[in-house]
Computed example of a mutant assay.
Amino acid sequence: MLAATITAADPADPLAGLRVGDHPEPAVPEGWSLVEVRAASLNYHDVLSLRGHGPRNAPFPRVLGSDVAGVDESGDEVLVHALVGDPAWTGDEVLDPRISMLSDFHDGGLAERIAVPSRNLVAKPAELSFEEAACLPTAWLTAYRMLFVLAGATEGTTVLMQGAGGGVATAVILLGRAAGVRVWVTGRSEEKRSRAVALGAAAAFEPGARLPERVDAVIETVGAATWAHSMKAVRPGGTIVVAGMTSGTNPPLDIERLYLANLRIVGTTMGSRHDLEGLVKMIVDHGLQPPIHEVIPLSETRAGFQAMVDGHLFGKVVARPE
């Protein structure tokens, strides 16, 4: 079958280890299901893997892609919760010490078919296309958990989203607006700032700009380049929720402001299956449509990743098996 795989990691040239070509059909262990992929969106997690930020003992080659929508063996339309953990774990999946994402130790969804634990299947609502549904399991789920579970955003609160054009950013804007949250964003280009406002952001600022007032929470996925601004932007008692580091790790931490302002810094990875079900319900209830930058054939996955590496995206890139 056709698949996009990682064959090696290269921090300087991430696409050097990307191969789009024939790959063995997936094995389907007991308790797992085979899904015919109808759409799979590209995610920055894939780029990090190609740069060498994946688990040290992750195998090569393996299929990339953690965002999948398709049809299961019973003919049901489904989307896939992308966290694979210990079947015996009974708590929140994100806290399972054995948890991993699809494409880390198990083949991901940038392929014609994928095998996943049957418990990871969530019904796809008829209101969403396969392409739209494939945007949800990673970026949109992360945004939902960051906003509502960890930041506690409610109607009337103000949230700053660092970055204006990626999958998490566009999800935060649309989910926040639907819940009555005032969402501010930062963006490096005037085009992305304008598109964010058109999408529903209350205001857009240049990176590092002085804000009209401090915010209740900051959604942080950029890392080193925006961290100092995030620390200054949040009000006393506010929260910074972290789920990424696209600009690099280990930014300086203003410990004095952290304790004097009683700030809360919370990390998260994705969200639980319960969170995904809540996200799907919210999208249907509010008639939301995930912004899609482009739909491409699976065979053109390299071009999609190149656009992601170059930063020329607003919304998600979705690949479809031909």
Rank of each mutant, 00 (worst) to 15 (best):
R210A: 13
R210D: 09
L211D: 05
P212M: 11
P212N: 11
E213M: 11
R214L: 03
V215C: 03
D216R: 08
A217S: 11
A217D: 02
A217G: 05
V218Y: 03
V218G: 01
V218C: 04
I219M: 15
E220W: 06
E220Y: 06
T221V: 14
T221S: 15
T221L: 09
T221E: 02
V222E: 01
V222P: 00
A224W: 01
A225C: 07
T226R: 01
T226I: 08
W227M: 04
W227V: 05
A228V: 06
A228W: 03
H229S: 10
S230F: 05
S230E: 04
K232E: 14
K232A: 15
A233H: 07
V234L: 06
R235H: 06
P236R: 15
P236M: 13
P236V: 13
G238M: 06
T239P: 00
T239E: 00
T239R: 14
T239Y: 02
I240W: 02
A243D: 03
G244S: 08
G244L: 06
M245P: 00
T246H: 04
S247D: 08
G248Q: 07
G248S: 09
G248N: 09
T249L: 13
T249F: 13
N250C: 01
N250L: 11
N250P: 00
P252I: 12
L253I: 15
L253H: 11
D254W: 08
D254L: 09
D254K: 13
D254H: 11
I255H: 11
R257V: 09
R257N: 09
L260I: 11
L260N: 08
N262F: 01
R264L: 03
R264K: 15
I265P: 02
V266W: 01
G267E: 06
G267M: 10
T268H: 06
T268C: 14
T268K: 05
T269Q: 12
T269V: 15
T269Y: 13
